[in-house]
Amino acid sequence: MVTVDHLVKDYGTLRAVDGVSFTINKGDILGFLGPNGAGKSTTMKMITGFLTPTSGTVTVDGLDVSKNPIEVKRQIGYLPESSAAYPEMTVVEFLTYVAEARGIRDPEELNSRLADVIVNCHLDSVKYRAIENLSKGYRQRVGVAQAIIHDPKVLILDEPTDGLDPNQKHEVRKLIQAMSKDKAIVLSTHILEEVEAICNRVIIIDQGKVLVDETPAEFKARIPGASIDEVFRDLTKGSALA
Rank of each mutant, 00 (worst) to 15 (best):
P69F: 00
V17R: 11
I24Y: 00
E71S: 11
T42S: 14
V17L: 09
M89D: 06
V65L: 03
D124A: 14
K40R: 08
D64E: 12
A130M: 14
H122S: 06
I104W: 06
Y97K: 01
P53S: 04
S135C: 02
R74K: 15
R15C: 14
S112G: 10
T48V: 07
R102H: 04
S82H: 10
V58M: 03
E109V: 09
V60W: 01
Q75F: 02
F22M: 05
H122E: 14
Q75M: 13
T43L: 04
I24K: 00
F94T: 01
V119G: 08
I47W: 04
L79A: 01
G37D: 10
Q75E: 10
S55H: 10
C121Q: 09
R102K: 15
E109N: 09
A99F: 13
V117A: 03
E88I: 01
I131V: 03
R129K: 12
K40L: 12
A84Q: 13
G77A: 03
N120K: 15
E93C: 11
T59H: 07
E93W: 15
K45D: 00
K127D: 00
M44D: 03
S125R: 03
V58G: 00
S66D: 14
M44Q: 05
I131P: 05
L30P: 13
P87G: 07
V126K: 09
E71I: 05
V117D: 02
P53M: 04
E108D: 13
V126Y: 14
L14P: 15
T59L: 12
A84K: 07
V92S: 11
E88N: 11
V17N: 10
V65S: 00
I70H: 08
F32H: 11
V60S: 01
S112V: 03
P107K: 14
R102F: 01
D116R: 12
D61P: 06
E88R: 07
V117L: 03
E109S: 04
I29W: 15
D61T: 02
S112P: 13
N133T: 15
V98Q: 03
